[in-house]
């Protein structure tokens, strides 16, 4: 079910992205309409940054709503699919960009240089799905503790977790060792 508005957005996006100043190698049929009625651009990781520049500067999508990823299952060649969603307040419009990646440890270019606020979305995506964003200035974990080795929202992660208490126990042991030393020094000083 495509409304006039969606068709107009699709035409507008397609005209810019595949026009003369558009993205290299992006076919016209890469701009479709998803089952939920949102205009969707299917790009490769190499095209992503260029697509985003055009979306922001030529088409007026001034904010990035979210960045997320989907795990298509262990053992797939094309395992992680990235989703970027953009909002234009001026045009009252939304658009989505899908990027298919390959391999178990995929890497896509960051778009933090275009929308600085995307930094948190990308950190969350790295934390929970294990997608690396090349060029991200500060790619730390966001939700899980620093130093955790796994990515909990992957399909092969057991829902009860893998050694969730490991980091806590390490911290606790170090703390107690330090306490024992300082306590010994204190008693030494008393004598």
């Amino acid at each position: 079910m495509t409304s006039e508005k969606q068709a107009a957005t699709q035409a507008r996006v397609a005209a810019v992205l595949t026009g003369s100043n558009g993205v290299q190698g992006l076919a016209v049929d890469a701009i479709g309409i998803d089952h939920d009625g949102m205009v969707c651009v299917t790009a490769t990781p190499e095209q992503l940054h260029e697509v985003c520049v055009l979306l922001r500067d030529a088409l007026g999508f001034e904010s990035n709503t979210f960045v997320t990823a989907r795990d298509h299952g262990v053992g797939r060649e094309q395992r992680f699919e990235m989703f970027y969603q953009f909002l234009s307040v001026a045009h009252v419009d939304r658009v989505r960009v899908r990027v298919m990646t390959t391999g178990d440890d995929p890497e896509v270019p960051t778009i933090t240089d275009l929308w600085p606020g995307t930094s948190f979305s990308e950190r969350e995506c790295w934390d929970l799905m294990g997608v690396r964003f090349s060029g991200h200035p500060d790619l730390r974990r966001l939700l899980m503790p620093q130093g955790y080795d796994h990515h909990p929202l992957r399909k092969d992660f057991p829902h009860v977790g893998i050694e969730p208490d490991k980091l806590y126990n390490q911290w606790d042991e170090e703390r107690r060792a330090a306490f024992a030393i300082s306590e010994a020094e204190r008693l030494e000083g008393k004598r």
Binding site: V160, G161, E163, D165, N169
Partner: peptide
């Protein structure tokens, strides 16, 4: 103890007590 989760039970070691 971490209830319900046998894979977690092994992680516990007795720590020096305060």
């Amino acid at each position: 103890h971490t209830l319900h989760q046998p894979n977690r039970a092994v992680a516990h070691k007795k720590l020096p007590a305060l």
